[in-house]
Design a protein around this nucleic acid. Structure first.
Length: 406
DNA sequence: CTTCCACGGGAACACTGGGGTG
DNA sequence: CACCCCAGTGTTCCCGTGGAAG
């Protein structure tokens, strides 16, 4: 071998262009989204005529093509705008990153060349800077807020201010596209915001298995040497993803990872078996990733459940038991324990993340508790958890417990 | 019907990291 | 430089509440 990488570059030759399988890739065609593209374009075309398009809320679960569709339409719109010499801008904001009204306005102000620090100023000042920046020119600005539900949860003043900004502008016009994967998120909003934001609604239903197959086939033609895919591979990827509320992102990930596995094992073909392996690996990866990024206190709570499993011989524990074990762990680690109230919030978060399963049960005369159980394989959790040096001290503990149960 | 316990909503607080001003 | 202002986050404190066993 001449170079370490020789073998790796030439390996398999399964892929032609792996990039098209990434979720960030915006394809030329978006199968089964023709309706949504049309409605979106209809509404936004007002911008080209010098009017202000209605505000739009877009609903749909993750991986239903919301972001891709909006990006696609906005590219087209900006292109047409340049041709017609009418100034149209789309600004894409991921509200998961810019998740407070300060950050949203600071970002927007910066887009229009205003000098605003990312923290420190009073919000109304940031807001007026943004207003000043945007109003320097006659133009139509369409602000896309991806994952708006994030903003709505933290009080809706960002949405409120944005939605009524037009009345304070002389030259520019602003309209908002909110993208949400929670169908009920408008119920969190103030009535005024709700009616102004939701002037138009577009729904993105989940893909069914057949539609997922179409999407995958489309992309696979570009991504793979097509003959290298065994017949069942695409249907299987589609089927897996369809079980998971028709998530196209997941389907594409599956296909990509399957290909990578095949590539690495130097198989001639991508087989259904590779898909199954890919499915396992994706699941394990996401769990590991989630646990790794947990704050220390949450990790201690999670490890408490783990320790209880070793100590007692059962799977579910009352919140009291977990809290006691948590206190002991903190003691052991030399950390200040949090209050029961706070820990109950942490448990709720772990529940949402799917690491733990917590059910509220009333034991009548003996009050209410949450019954808490681990909802992912123990083997995934333990190694990752104790990678954290702050939790190292618990490792010896767990070994002793394991010995005792033998 | 009472009783019991943690649940979970909300207010208050502490702290951080940045600003501007004199 | 010292000082106060501000948004945002994590936490504690307080407390009303649900619901089946007794």
């Amino acid at each position: 071998m001449e170079n370490l990488f020789d073998d790796l570059i030439s390996a398999g030759g399964i892929f032609v262009n792996k990039e098209v399988l990434r979720s960030t890739y915006i394809p030329e065609k978006l199968p089964h989204r023709e309706m949504q593209i049309k409605s979106l374009a209809d509404i936004l075309s007002a911008a080209l005529k010098g009017e202000t398009p209605s505000n739009i809320v877009i609903y749909g679960k993750s991986g239903t093509g919301k972001t891709a569709t909006v990006r696609y339409v906005s590219n087209e719109l900006e292109r047409m705008g340049r041709k017609m010499d009418s100034k149209c801008f789309m600004i894409y904001i991921n509200s998961e990153v810019f998740d407070t009204q300060y950050r949203v306005f600071a970002y927007l102000a910066r887009v229009f060349n205003q000098n605003v620090p990312m923290i420190g100023w009073p919000t109304d000042m940031v807001y007026s800077e943004f207003k000043a920046g945007i109003d320097t020119d006659d133009r139509c600005v369409i602000v896309v807020l991806d994952e708006v539900d994030r903003l709505a949860v933290k009080g809706d003043s960002a949405l409120y201010n944005l939605s009524r900004i037009n009345s304070e502008l002389n030259n520019a016009r602003v309209s908002i596209i909110g993208i949400s994967n929670d169908l009920t998120f408008t119920t969190l909003l103030d009535q005024r915001v709700k009616s102004s934001l939701g002037e138009e609604e577009i729904i993105f239903p989940p893909y069914n298995a057949d539609q997922l197959q179409d999407i995958l086939t489309e992309r696979a033609r570009m991504a793979f040497h097509f003959s290298r895919l065994a017949d069942g591979v695409i249907p299987l990827c589609a089927a897996f993803a369809a079980q998971e509320h028709g998530d196209a992102r997941r389907a594409l990930d599956l296909l990509r990872v399957s290909g990578e596995i095949a590539d690495r094992t130097k198989s001639k073909m991508v087989t259904e078996d590779h898909v199954r392996q890919a499915s396992d690996r994706l699941e394990a990866n996401s769990i590991v990733e989630v646990i790794k990024t947990l704050p220390v206190q949450s990790k201690i709570v999670l490890s408490s459940v783990l320790l209880l499993r070793k100590e007692r011989n059962k799977k579910r524990f009352s919140s009291g038991e977990v809290y006691n074990m948590y206190r002991r762990s903190c003691n052991h680690l030399g950390m200040e324990p949090l209050t029961q109230r706070r820990v109950s919030d942490l448990v709720a978060e772990l529940d949402i993340l799917g690491l733990v399963n917590a059910v509220l049960v009333s034991k009548g005369r003996y009050g209410r508790t949450k019954e808490i159980a681990l909802s992912v394989p123990e083997g995934y959790v333990q190694p990752v958890l104790f990678e954290d040096y702050k939790l190292k001290a618990l490792v010896s503990d767990i070994k002793v417990k394991a010995q005792m149960t033998l």
